[in-house]
Design a protein around this nucleic acid. Structure first.
Length: 155
DNA sequence: GCCAACGTTGGC
DNA sequence: GCCAACGTTGGC
């Protein structure tokens, strides 16, 4: 089992939106970066755990956790010309983009802010705070997972 | 709105 | 295969 961090813009889809989804589950679509796609295709497994991160907002922070509940599946928004995630070069017989179903686990009592992560000794090496990193799906170590959950008031 | 740091595209 | 131009991400 592995740990991950998923970024989402809360104006688009927040942890509350996930919690309010049918069965508290949603298909994670719109990943259009090859490195992130490769994580989905090659490494993400059911039962993997996710730090849910709010980006591009007033207070960027890890706001809760979720769990992977499906294998990788075709992201059909790539074939929809109406979708902002449309990709004319993705061939339906050979889908280029994938997603997984994720299910809400918990919302933190205390969001763990980017600002805090940057100055926390135990979290210095998180992918999130490495220079220039913009990946929307990132690996997280078990130690980082434990530390974030403690800080979030989940343990 | 700015801009650093990437990733992608396409001409050569 | 190189690399300049362009587009995107995302914190501030």
């Amino acid at each position: 089992m592995k740990y991950w961090l998923f970024k989402s813009e809360p104006d688009d889809f927040s942890i509350d939106d996930l919690a309010a989804s049918d069965k508290q589950t949603t298909f994670w679509f719109g990943i259009r970066n090859y490195q992130a796609r490769n994580f989905i295709r090659d490494e993400l497994q059911p039962d993997d755990l996710i730090l849910f991160y709010h980006s591009s907002c007033a207070v960027p922070a890890v706001v809760g956790t979720a769990i992977v509940v499906s294998e990788a599946q075709t992201d059909n928004t790539a074939f929809d010309p109406q979708s902002p995630y449309f990709d004319a070069k993705s061939d339906p017989s050979k889908p280029r983009w994938l997603g997984v179903d994720i299910q809400f686990q918990r919302k933190f009592a205390t969001p763990v802010t980017l600002r805090f992560i940057k100055q926390d000794e135990q979290l210095q090496r998180m992918y999130l705070v490495q220079k220039g990193n913009r990946l929307s799906i990132q690996p997280v170590t078990e130690d980082e997972w434990q530390r974030i959950l403690t800080l979030g008031g989940a343990q």
